[in-house]
Design a protein around this nucleic acid. Structure first.
Lengths: 118, 118
DNA sequence: CGGCATCCGACCGGATACTG
DNA sequence: CAGTATCCGGTCGGATGCCG
């Protein structure tokens, strides 16, 4: 399986949480689903400029397996699949909020100091 | 330079924060330094079972470059180097706390449900 | 003691092509 | 539309050996 999550023995809480959100786009997916409530595969793809379908689906599957998101398939033609956050996903997003705020401040500080790499 | 951090243009705060803490041991280093205030290289190494010297020093250097930790060299024989958190490192650790709590709950839930991979 | 240099395997993630 | 399959390169990270 192309699973990157360890789901293994964890040293501490941070370790376990990082395991679940590590992956280039996962936090962005969380963010996106939290903002819009529900998103289709294509919408998600368009929301994350630069993501490949492979990585997107891989991340989505892992996040589903981790109980963070829900995948609802509509047996229609053309096919439709909607992704949304589970309760765990929502609480994770809440837990991520302070980190996001910290990062935001960091971005602003870097911009002010002109330390941003060219 | 063997730098894994992008320090590049960020999409959002989470993105910027994840950039700084991604790396197998960084959050643990943060945790360790926060608990003990100051740690020598060898102590840190012993605190993180399984870490290689290469990764430890690499992470420490990146975290120093990112302004998260302070490196103090004592010109003695034998040499001594002490690492400690900067103010930014401390605030990052604070921002990480909810995530750690979330992860801790996740570990407990996994244990209860016996879902932990063998 | 506290590093640095080098080699190397694993896997993370991108590009492309194909399918129901 | 929403994937799957395959190939492939770059990087992450471990092992080993050497140095001030």
């Amino acid at each position: 399986m192309a699973s990157s999550a360890r789901r293994g023995p964890y040293i501490c809480g941070i370790d376990a949480a990082m395991d679940v959100v590590s992956g280039k786009w996962k936090s962005l997916i969380l963010w996106e689903l939290d903002s819009h409530g529900t998103r289709r595969f294509g919408e998600l793809k368009r929301s994350l400029p630069g993501v490949s379908e492979k990585m997107l689906i891989q991340h989505l599957r892992e996040m589903e397996e981790d109980g963070l998101i829900h995948r609802k398939v509509f047996r229609e033609v053309p096919p439709r699949v909607e992704y949304s956050l589970t309760e765990h996903g929502k609480t994770l997003n809440e837990a991520l909020r302070p980190l996001g705020a910290w990062g935001k401040e960091r971005i602003e500080r870097l911009a002010r100091e002109g330390t941003l790499a060219t």
